Computed example of a mutant assay.
Amino acid sequence: MDSWEAVLLVIATMGSVAAAAGAWFQERRSSATQLAAVQRKLDLVMDHLGIAAPEEPEVVRHLENGRTIEAVRAYRKQTGASLLEAKQAVDRIAADRRLPPFRTRT
C-alpha cells in the first residue's frame, strides 16, 4: 500500500466517524426538542383542566426563604424547563402559596 493510499484511508475513516457522531448528536437533540414540546403541551392541558402540577419541595423552600432565582434554578434542574417556563411556574407556585414572587433581601 502506497503512503497516499494510507493517508486517504485514514481521512476517509475519520470522516465516517465524524459523520456518525454528528448524526447521533442530531438525533439526541431532536429527541430532547420533541420531549420539551410534549411537556409544554401537557402543561397547557393541565392548566386548562385546572390540575395543579406537583410542587417541588426544594423550589418551595427557596421561595419561602425569599430566594426566587434559586427557586427558578432548582425548578429548571428538576424539570428541564426553559428559563421562561421555569419563571412562570415558580411565579404560579408563589401565587398559589400566597408568597410574593420577588422579595428583596435585607
Rank of each mutant, 00 (worst) to 15 (best):
L63H: 08
E56M: 08
L84T: 15
L63T: 05
L84F: 15
V90I: 07
G50E: 10
H62K: 02
T79E: 05
H62W: 05
K87I: 07
D91Q: 13
E64Y: 02
D96G: 15
H62R: 02
P57C: 04
R73I: 10
E70L: 11
P54M: 07
A74F: 05
E85M: 12
V72H: 09
P57R: 05
D96W: 04
I51W: 06
E56A: 08
I69H: 12
G66A: 02
I51S: 04
L63I: 03
A52F: 06
S82E: 13
A89R: 02
E56I: 12
E55L: 12
K77R: 12
A95F: 09
D47T: 10
E58R: 02
A94V: 07
Q78F: 14
A81F: 00
D96P: 02
A81H: 04
A86S: 11
R97I: 04
P100F: 06
I69R: 07
K77P: 00
V45N: 06
K87L: 14
P54C: 03
P100Y: 02
A71G: 09
I93A: 07
A86E: 00
Q78E: 14
V45H: 10
K77A: 14
V45Y: 10
A71I: 01
A86I: 00
I69Y: 08
G66H: 01
I69F: 14
A89Q: 12
E55R: 06
H48A: 15
G80A: 06
G66T: 06
L49Y: 09
H48S: 15
E70C: 08
I69A: 13
A74Y: 00
R92M: 11
E58Q: 10
L99C: 11
R92Y: 05
E70V: 01
I93G: 01
